[in-house]
């Protein structure tokens, strides 16, 4: 059996994968950058925690409640801000992330404020986390391979052309944003029921930035790239843990190195598949063969 440290790491990876999957849909496929997704994660975490502790709701009901609240708030926020140009939208989501934190601290009677919210039942087990993470990625992958994913991609690639072939770009931006909020809320609920104790600071802008960095490093337009990069970037700080205060430095250098070496991210526009690996190997072989011919 795995040590509890290893189990904890795997659960953390799974939770991050779920949140990052949402950001991948929004940023990687629809081309909208958000620095507010940790805000949705906070909503999911607090709503599900309060439902579990105060209302004694079953785990599944608490999780769904967290997802629904994130979805509703995401819908409202999207309605107001998705008409803005990309960079202004980014700033609006950044503001949203801050507002969520402030509000949680302000309503300390319900949320415990800055002191945190404790005694959440530990329901997120290793298997639940793994199954839900795999399920979330599968749902996202199937969506990407449908007209929904195509319409997201059309928005990212060329909005004018997307509209010209009948794609309601606002509607699909809205859809991607709500989906990313739902994935974040879901991840938040699992997070709360794993750590048993949550404080607003856990869901600050660093967390949002980390999700976005993960997707960019993994390669825009590649869900498998996002997942791989999420696993790597979640485990990387842990590997450097023995170096204590230097670990974030190494982490930062690793991110910069990846961006410099592969500007389009680990996977670029590709998905990890057997077909893709075979193609790469054939291309490599072709290259070496032509080199040999030259010499």
């Amino acid at each position: 059996m795995l040590s509890s440290y290893a189990q904890g790491l795997i659960i953390l990876v799974c939770i991050n994968v779920i949140a990052v999957t949402g950001v991948s849909l929004l940023t990687g496929f629809t081309g909208l950058f958000s620095f507010g997704n940790a805000g949705f994660m906070a909503l999911g975490a607090y709503v599900s925690a309060i439902a579990s502790v105060e209302l004694h709701a079953p785990f599944l009901v608490s999780l769904v409640a967290g997802v629904l609240v994130a979805a509703i708030i995401g819908f409202g926020l999207g309605r107001l801000t998705l008409g803005l140009r990309g960079d202004y939208f980014l700033i609006a989501t950044l503001g949203f992330g801050q507002v969520v934190q402030v509000l949680i601290e302000f309503f300390d009677k319900v949320t415990g404020g800055a002191r945190g919210f404790a005694n959440i039942p530990p329901k997120t087990t290793l298997w639940i986390a793994v199954v839900l993470a795999v399920g979330s990625v599968a749902v996202a992958a199937n969506l990407i391979h449908s007209k929904f994913g195509r319409n997201f991609t059309a928005v990212r690639e060329q909005e004018v052309a997307a509209e010209a072939v009948g794609i309601d770009t606002f509607r699909f931006k809205q859809m991607a944003f709500v989906l990313s909020a739902m994935f974040a809320g879901f991840a938040g609920g699992l997070f709360a029921h794993y750590y048993m104790y949550i404080v607003p600071k856990m869901f600050d802008i660093n967390e949002s930035a980390l999700f976005t960095i993960t997707v960019v490093v993994g390669g825009l337009a590649s869900l498998s790239g996002s997942v791989i990069s999420c696993v790597v970037l979640t485990l990387l700080p842990e590997l450097f843990r023995s170096l204590a205060s230097y670990r974030m430095l190494f982490y930062g250098m690793a991110v910069v190195a990846i961006i410099l070496i592969r500007p389009s991210g680990l996977m670029g526009y590709h998905e990890l598949s057997f077909g893709w690996i075979r193609e790469r190997m054939r291309a490599k072989r072709g290259k070496t063969a032509s080199k040999e011919r030259k010499t």
Binding site: T153, A154, E157, Q158, V160, A161, A164, V165, G166, I167
Partner: peptide, 19 residues
């Protein structure tokens, strides 16, 4: 010209098949 330049030729056509 406003194609989805990063995508494949057939994907450009498939993109427009929402109807």
């Amino acid at each position: 010209i406003r194609l989805f330049t990063q995508l494949s030729v057939i994907d450009n056509v498939v993109m427009a098949s929402g109807v």
